[in-house]
């Protein structure tokens, strides 16, 4: 069944903010996205890590001690959930979070400068390399942050805060000019 993004009415495509040549950054909503929270059962940290490494067509992101977000853009949320439930039986607790979180991609030369207005995490490449995830707060909202490229990150927030968070993110991006894609 076709899913409706929480940001459908606010994340309008186009060019916004200051006009200083090329936009300083690009913002887009990653939707639809299947997300499952996977938490190791007691004593199964290592087994879970190994099991996660064998999964295909998914991204495995650190999301806390012995916790991971397993994401897929190609599998349906139900398919992902059932697959993980089966493969990780007795290894991990699996919870569907596909609808509970809204994921925003932010990229471009000013991406780090915008994120620095929100997170106390040092996003310097040596401190926060590509592939690393962190849990932090930005604009009073809990954020799961992942570096997906040199100047590219994803931010995932609780669905209910997503509109408010989007307003903050775009207002902080405006001085550099941004493109919503």
């Amino acid at each position: 069944m076709l899913r409706t993004s929480a940001l459908q009415s606010v994340a309008i495509q186009g060019r916004f903010g200051a006009d200083k040549g090329q936009p300083g950054l690009m913002l887009s909503v990653v939707h639809p996205l299947a997300i499952a929270m996977v938490i190791a059962r007691k004593g199964k940290s290592k087994v879970l890590k190994d099991a996660l490494a064998t999964l295909k067509s998914v991204n495995v992101l650190w999301a806390g001690p012995d916790q991971y977000y397993v994401q897929s853009t190609v599998k349906s949320e139900t398919a992902l959930y059932i697959e993980l439930k089966t493969k990780l039986a007795n290894i991990a607790s699996v919870t569907d979070q596909s609808h509970g979180r809204v994921t925003i991609r932010i990229s471009g030369p000013k991406a780090r400068a915008v994120l620095a207005k929100g997170t106390p995490i040092d996003l310097y490449t040596e401190e926060f390399p590509v592939g690393k995830s962190a849990l932090t707060q930005m604009a009073h909202v809990g954020v799961h942050l992942t570096r997906t490229g040199n100047d590219e990150f994803t931010l995932s927030v609780f669905r209910g805060f997503s509109e408010s968070f989007w307003e903050w993110l775009t207002s902080q991006s405006a001085e550099f000019g941004y493109q919503v894609g």
Binding site: I39, R41, S93, T95, D96, Q97, S98, H99, G160
Partner: peptide, 13 residues
């Protein structure tokens, strides 16, 4: 010592 995992699903539903 308990084997228990918990996560908020308030926003999922």
């Amino acid at each position: 010592e308990m084997d228990v995992q918990y996560v908020s699903v308030t926003e999922q539903w």
